[in-house]
Nucleic acid binder design. Structure first.
Lengths: 213, 213
DNA sequence: GTCTATAAGTCGATAGAC
DNA sequence: GTCTATCGACTTATAGAC
């Protein structure tokens, strides 16, 4: 469908992505992108016409990536707590490896909500998000008595928050707690365990009396 | 100590705060700050010399605010779960009311870690953060058997994450889930309840066998 | 396709009158 | 203290030679 991008075009996009994620739309400089990509500044405009359009390409790709990271972390098999373990570990893996993506999305998407709309439309094809695997799994688990009744949206938010936020605040955390390194596998492993334990114990079904019919 | 700021100076600072929080350091325009404050652009430089210094003043004030929000949400009295309830409710209250502050801090502090360092030094006077009220409360609660043993840092992160992150992603959430309004008191109340329930059940001490010595 | 040179516009900052 | 006018630096974008 698309004419294949040239090697040079891909290199520019790759570098543009790095620069935009670091500096944001306003802070990024076409000059810097050109230099780091090893091409002339005029080439950027030859391939992408304007900063606006280059940014648009990067933003859309990264929003897609952001959503995919989430979906790719949702396993297809296993009971609820296996599902949870796989999800937490895969998602933390991704967020810890490149927290810049989350930082960038949270900062930039606010002024570009339409992009998110388009990407979601493309990925979910109009299917409501409440019917996506993550929510289905929660509802099924509740119905089966695997976990106590909770509001699926809030459980989703709780898991997500605990996986992401600490890595978002990494620069602050590491200033406050001198010895800390959030990228270290020791810290990452501790987080996985603490999150999973909190959720597992926190969702344990109430001492089962007979469930009403 | 400080000569009292004039009315006009305060108005400029107030507007500058709004603009910087909305657009970031790079995106903010002195022109816009001047207009919205109802003064001439030259006045900005008369009072604050440069954009750099105006920004520095705003950033330091907001970082301080960010830390204070946290500390002010920590109550002095009550048992552990009362403490938790007060904290979650007060902190969510603040974050929900102005998520821009968190967004701004997470985006900007990365390139200005020194500011955070200075603010913390000023607030904590060199006292390690691990000795701050929040951590003490957790340690005390564990020692007293009120809650099961957990890593204090991670419990702190878990609570914080669940209180903040959903409001950070509000623009995304509200796109994904059409009917949602995260500022609505209904949503806020639901979050408080879901967080508190998860934590309370998740931290319940194990069926006490004799604790080893 | 690639480069140099430069146009066109924006923004922070200041000079200087009042 | 306040305003207008403008400078000078920087940034995106393009014209035009090769």
């Amino acid at each position: 469908m698309k004419p294949l991008s040239t090697e040079k075009e891909r290199r520019i996009l790759q570098v543009a992505r790095d620069v935009f994620l670091e500096k944001g739309k306003q802070g990024a400089r076409m000059q810097e992108i050109a230099q780091r990509a090893g091409v002339n500044k005029a080439m950027l405009h030859y391939y992408f016409r304007s900063k606006e359009q280059l940014y648009a390409k990067v933003l859309e790709a990264e929003v897609t990536q952001f959503v995919r990271h989430l979906l790719d972390a949702v396993p297809e098999e296993g009971d609820f707590f296996q599902f949870l373990e796989v999800f937490v570990k895969s998602y933390i893996q991704k967020v810890a490896a490149s927290p810049q993506l989350v930082r960038f999305i949270l900062w930039e998407v606010r002024d570009n909500v339409q992009v998110l709309g388009r990407v979601l439309q493309h990925i979910f094809q109009g299917e409501p998000v409440k019917n996506s695997p993550f929510f289905i799994r929660i509802q099924t688990a509740i119905a089966a008595g695997e976990i106590r009744p909770v509001e699926p949206l809030h459980l989703f938010l709780n898991v997500l928050s605990m996986c992401v936020y600490p890595f978002l605040m990494a620069p602050l955390l590491e200033t406050v707690i001198p010895g800390l390194d959030v990228q270290a596998s020791q810290f990452i492993h501790q987080r996985e365990q603490e999150i999973l334990q909190l959720i597992e114990k926190g969702l344990r079904p109430e001492n089962q009396r007979e469930t009403g019919e």
